[in-house]
Design a protein around this nucleic acid. Structure first.
Ligand SMILES: [Mg+2]
Ligand SMILES: [Mg+2]
Lengths: 387, 387
DNA sequence: TGGCTGTTTATAAACAGTTAA
DNA sequence: AATTAACTGTTTATAAACAGC
């Protein structure tokens, strides 16, 4: 599977298909993505890797519906070696029926128009690659997302160009991409609309008008988006709360501090451990050392792991490492990723770079028996169980 | 109109009717409340005030559909004088067709069953008055809410007992009522469900099962609701973030520090003013002096007011005074209610107790030309308008 | 396996205030 | 200048996907 470390949760697939305008209502069935996970390793047959017509650093990868993820990765590895360093760092994945290589190139030349829009490109820092729904973005840290729309044979009239497929990003993510594309990290509502329409034509062409309502809803709802007014109060700009801004853009989801290696296990993540008093537990946390992910996870087994248990561990580690990267100061109010100490060697076997932690963990509460949560900080009461 | 001061926004009516289970789907039209605001002062005719069968401190008030708010208040005033001090402090308002007094009493005897529920009543501090949708709650501070369901003649089969009408509170409000009803201010999810079903039979009888999803959604969504686990991690309790807990309960929405007076203008609210540098503006804020509502409002006229303008002012003042009472420290990051200084005398005429403010306002930004917001803090940028 | 609990995202809508037509 | 329509912003409600127990 090779899922990537540190891929933010806000980039995971949105849950469900999207509102389409009435005109497209009839084709809804063909979109309800369900096969996105049936990724099987197969031959590279049918995969075409095409240079982007205008961007030397970008590749367009056409993936037939039958191809599995492994084939895609193999094809990319070949191309990467072929191109040498610095190789391409943008990968636009198209799946489904696509024309010839030239047609594919034409697709992108015809649609990189962000010039006749009033506000677009003002800051001169915009990303100009339009992105489509069945697109995968591969970043330098190995982040890969794939969606394979299930084309049904019975509607040949479907204008299912990749430019009209819904992108795999949530509204929150797209708004961040948009705002961070500006040098000064601020945008008016209209600019956000236009940036999204320019980079994801789905919203201009197919989505029901309600998508703008959703954008506004997201701006208001999430604390990370803050509205600031010019001193004269005439204009409102939307910004991202600096301490919450991870600088995500379409071009670069994460800037790794370490060169990504071939290992399928994340090495870039710095992991520390410390004995918890009176417990046979170990604290495992993400870098930097003085900070921890606001997450506490208890692995229920402490014996030397068998391969099945190792797999569970690895999956959990990977999932956690993809979590929202809001790092918080270490305290017992913000519990941390917590495993039994007997697993230290297991982690080390798995190439997880465990280092002893030197501060903070002394105040950690005792190892609770169970847990539930999906990324939220968990709080414990002081005394014994109260009714 | 006589709306009450300091009634929190979370107690305003929710926006739309509610999900009903399939069985009731046909009667939806008769609920879409629209006449809730047509409150006219009329005679007290038809209003019946009945003692609660089991609670000496409670009254049941049956309000015919034709009766206006003033009639209700008159009837209550009469009853209150009649009962003396300490008079009733719980008022259950029923509107629409109700039977005889005895039938009304029977209604409440039959439905105050919170005994064969596992968790209900454990803390011994529960409110036990069931509440229904067409209910008004009058509190000692004069808070009144009224809804008059629009009964349609064409469905006599409607089982529109008050016990099956949707309450006028938002989920967030009901959850607060529930949690604050416990001495220790914590409840499990199940207890919250049960409290709500016990006090608002609508949810047990009529609402679609999705209402529980909505409760969970609200618990997760709102930062004010915090989940705490027992040290052994076996039980999760939901609590209210202390600094956000206004102690709202069904019994007491607000504990006034001042005896409510007969004036229709809120006197309990302490209001201060200060000149803003280089502006003919005045800051008006709620008590305590060192804190302000996180709201800035600019009234666009500065001449001595005519009666129409006064009415606008009064309405705006009332609306603001009902806002979410999250008071924040005074700073230029948290602008304040702001009027032109020429209005000070107008406010004083209106019995608004204006006092000069002595601290903090010096950092206030200049009076902006316009504004938009509904209760949120507004931020201004430092420099001049940026593109 | 299925139900319960908890976290998120998506969508629609009510409603208030502002600006443009 | 008054009315209206469109735009902007804040909330609440509802459904659903999904994870973990
Ligand atoms: Mg926001
Ligand atoms: Mg919460």
């Amino acid at each position: 599977m090779m899922s990537s470390p540190r891929r933010p949760i806000i980039l995971t697939r949105r849950k469900r298909p999207f509102q389409r305008s009435e005109a497209d209502e009839t084709q809804n069935k063909s979109y309800t993505a369900s096969g996105a996970r049936s990724v099987s390793a197969s031959a590279q047959d049918g995969i075409r890797v095409v240079d982007h017509p205008t961007r030397p650093e970008a590749l367009v990868v056409v993936v037939p519906e039958t191809a599995g993820l492994q084939s895609v990765l193999d094809a990319l590895t070949v191309k990467r070696k072929e191109r040498g360093t610095p190789g391409p760092n943008k990968f636009i994945f198209l799946s489904g029926r696509c024309g010839s290589d030239d047609e594919v190139k034409a697709l992108f030349q015809a649609t990189s128009e962000n010039k006749n829009r009033p506000e677009a490109g003002v800051a001169g820092n915009d990303q100009t690659l339009p992105n489509s729904g069945c697109t995968c973005k591969e970043k330098f840290d190995g982040c890969v997302q794939l969606q394979e729309p299930q084309h049904t044979e019975e509607d040949p009239s479907a204008v299912k160009g990749p430019l009209s497929e819904r992108p795999p990003y949530s509204y929150m993510a797209m708004i961040q991409f948009a705002i961070n594309s500006k040098k000064n990290k601020m945008m008016t509502l209209k600019e956000i609309y236009n940036w999204i329409e320019d980079h994801f034509p789905y919203f201009r062409n197919i989505a029901k008008p309600g998508w703008k309502n959703s954008i506004r809803h997201n701006l208001s709802l999430h604390d990370m988006f803050i509205r600031e007014s010019t001193p004269d109060g005439k204009i409102s700009y939307w910004t991202i709360k600096p301490e919450a801004n991870r600088g995500l853009t379409l071009d670069q989801v994460y800037k790794p501090a370490v060169e990504p290696a071939a290992s399928s296990f994340p090495q870039a993540m710095q992991v520390c451990y410390q004995q918890v008093p009176n417990e046979s537990s170990v604290v495992v946390m993400s870098a930097p050392v003085a900070e921890v992910e606001e997450e506490r996870v208890c692995i229920p087994f402490s014996e030397p792991c068998n391969s099945e248990q190792k797999e569970i561990l690895r999956k959990r580690y990977e999932r956690i490492s993809r979590r929202k990267q809001r790092l918080v100061p270490l305290s017992n109010e913000e519990p941390v990723l917590l495993f039994d100490s007997s697993l230290v060697s297991t982690f080390q076997e798995m190439e997880c770079d465990l280092k002893p932690l030197t501060k903070g963990a002394a105040q950690l509460p005792p190892h609770p028996a169970s847990h539930r949560s999906r990324g939220r900080a968990r709080r414990w009461m002081k005394g014994t169980s109260t009714a």
